[in-house]
């Protein structure tokens, strides 16, 4: 139609303008999201002991400081140990719980579900002082195992959410098939169900690990003088000591990126066919 052409053209160009505004806005937001991550890179290679930008010269001295400082290394090692133990414990507790919450038919199930997800909503500070009070009475402050227990409470909801979602979409017919072919229920789960939800198990474990490795507040209260890496970083930031923290940050960013890539590879490689 001849008549409608100009109107349509105008409308399209207006939409084009809208899209440019959208792209510009998104670009700004992406810059906002990435900026604090990007800036620590040049700082970490600075030769100056002060926060100076651009750095007056380049060096690896802050990486050397991180690696050679016993308290940084101990804190890193402690955090890795705690996060590893938390992951194992949260998976061992959370996976069967997910099966129960998805498959079970018993009264009070939705209440159990709510309780298991509560740690996500309740402010960490409230839980931290609560468990600090309990462990203080039991004289457990300072023990790395105590932090593991506290972190596991927060890791369980992540495991439950991810594994439950996987189980909900998993075809129970697969398990029935295995059982009709002679497998016990346990064998069916081990040979058929778990291999097929492996990507979700990997994601859940990753989330549990990170949630513990990055956690500050619980560790701050329960750690006593035994600092975890986040506590050491916190103190470093508060006291504005030196840019070692920048080097530590870069190491963390690179590690997280690497693990994200590995997880996504593991995830896609094992996706079920249907």
């Amino acid at each position: 139609m001849e008549l409608s052409t100009p109107a349509r053209l105008r409308r399209h160009s207006r939409r084009g303008a809208w899209h440019y505004a959208l792209y510009a806005w998104c670009a700004l937001v992406f810059i906002f999201l990435m900026a604090p991550l990007v800036v620590v890179f040049p700082i970490s290679f600075s030769s100056s002991a002060y926060l100076q930008f651009p750095p007056p010269g380049w060096s690896l001295r802050w990486y050397a400081a991180y690696v050679s400082d016993a308290t940084w290394m101990e804190a890193t090692y402690r955090s890795l140990k705690i996060a590893g133990a938390t992951t194992v414990l949260a998976m061992l507790l959370g996976t069967p719980l997910s099966f129960s919450l998805v498959r079970g038919r018993y009264p009070g199930k939705s209440a159990l579900n709510q309780v298991s997800l509560l740690p996500l909503i309740v402010p960490v500070i409230v839980y931290s002082i609560a468990v600090y009070g309990l462990f203080g009475r039991l004289q457990l402050i300072g023990a790395w195992q105590a932090i593991v227990l506290g972190h596991t409470v927060h890791a369980i909801p992540f495991v439950v959410i991810i594994v439950s979602a996987a189980l909900r979409t998993f075809d129970i017919g697969q398990e029935h098939a295995a059982m009709s072919l002679g497998a016990s229920r346990a064998m069916a789960i081990w040979r058929v169900t778990l291999p097929q939800i492996r990507p979700s198990l990997v994601s859940a474990a990753f989330l549990a690990f990170i949630s513990s490795f990055d956690e500050l507040v619980v560790a701050m209260f329960l750690g006593g003088s035994n600092m975890t890496l986040p506590k050491k970083m916190f103190d470093n930031i508060v006291n504005e000591i030196d840019p070692t923290i920048a080097a530590v940050s870069v190491v963390q960013i690179i590690l997280v990126t690497a693990v994200l890539i590995v997880v996504s590879k593991l995830g896609s490689g094992a996706a079920p066919a249907n």
Binding site: D171, G173, Q174, H176, A177, S180, L181, Q196, P272, A273
Partner: peptide
């Protein structure tokens, strides 16, 4: 598992892995 019954399912339920 103890019934010795072979079953073919609606969607075949072949194990994809």
């Amino acid at each position: 598992a103890k019934r010795d019954i072979g079953m073919v399912f609606q969607n075949y339920a072949l194990f994809p892995h």
